[in-house]
């Protein structure tokens, strides 16, 4: 590892700019970016573009089929067990998934980068402590841990962000620590120290900016992960609570109608999968462009 890190310099920078232009040669990445942009737009604009109110029930028109199964344009994706419009609820569900995902990633990214820079920069006992803490977190089964904490504090939008954010810091910390470790002895750090820069300045002005690329790559891959975990929790009834629509709890509610109305379970699943796949593909591409050494 050390041998590789000391050899990067100018050539990498040059390769970077060339690869960034190459994005048009990656149709899957372009498609993923378009899908994601659409999802984000729908999430933000849901109240303006959704055809109905997500809570408006019409019990006489419940379990209406979608367009391709004999439905009509009034409810293109059909209606659910309470007669609510599925398309509308999917649009509002995007808000929940994306908002929780982005905020949890921000929380865990900030924590993880801070822990990683500190551990890598100071080394010694601080490093040892933080890394043991990381090992402990990895030893605890993630879903089980999150569920237990939610059982204690109760499921809510804020609690989900806090819990997913607090538990997701390890991947950032590990990678950023390795970067900081390899940077500690590099000339620009030694030089900055020689002219009298304090530790805090070294960390914030010199080391931190150099770890941003790694943090962005991990963040994008973690975002996909968190979206799926949030959906799983909501599916189990421990995430976003009904009647607030989320892709996960829509799927959970659809379980009772698998025999007769399987699209109720199919559509939110497609929404989650398409979003997660797009985010993952963009994350993979970002890694190739920014820093192919990052192992995830």
């Amino acid at each position: 590892m050390a041998a590789i890190t000391t050899t990067i310099g100018l050539p990498v920078a040059r390769r970077r700019s060339r690869r960034a232009v190459d994005i048009l040669k990656h149709p899957t990445v372009v498609a993923s970016a378009l899908v994601l942009a659409t999802m984000v737009f729908v999430a933000i604009a849901a109240p303006l573009i959704a055809p109905y109110d997500p809570y408006e029930q019409h019990l006489e028109g419940r379990l209406g089929p979608p367009l391709w199964a004999g439905g009509s344009l009034t409810h293109p994706f059909g209606t659910d067990q309470l007669g609510r419009d599925v398309l509308t609820r999917l649009m509002y569900g995007a808000r929940v998934s994306i908002a929780i995902g982005v905020m949890a990633v921000l929380v865990s990214g900030v924590l993880g980068v801070a822990a990683g820079v500190t551990a890598g920069f100071y080394g010694g006992i601080v490093d040892e402590l933080l890394m043991r803490l990381a090992d402990l977190r990895l030893a605890l089964p993630f879903v089980l841990l999150v569920i237990s904490v939610i059982a204690v504090f109760g499921p809510s939008f804020t609690n989900l962000i806090v819990i997913l954010g607090l538990t997701g810091w390890v991947p950032y910390a590990k990678i950023v620590r390795a970067e900081a470790l390899s940077m500690r002895e590099r000339e620009f750090i030694v030089a900055a120290r020689a002219v009298g820069a304090r530790n805090s300045r070294l960390m914030f002005r010199h080391i931190l900016p150099n770890t941003v690329a790694a943090a962005i790559v991990i963040g994008s891959l973690e975002l996909a992960n968190i979206i799926v975990v949030e959906a799983s929790l909501s599916f189990l009834g421990l995430g976003v609570q009904a009647p607030t629509p989320s892709w996960g709890n829509m799927l959970g509610e659809a379980r009772d109608y698998l025999m007769s109305n399987f699209w109720l379970a199919t559509l939110p699943g497609i929404a989650i999968s398409v979003t997660a796949i797009s985010v993952n593909l963009i994350g993979d591409w970002l890694r190739d462009v920014l820093d192919p050494r990052i192992q995830t």
């Binding site: 799926v228 379970a265 699943g269 989650i272 999968s273 993952n280």
Partner: peptide, 18 residues
């Protein structure tokens, strides 16, 4: 690989059941 890492297990399970 991308699908396996992106698709939620509970949804795959439900689709397999269907």
């Amino acid at each position: 690989s991308v699908a396996g890492q992106s698709l939620p297990a509970f949804w795959i399970g439900i689709m397999l059941i269907i």
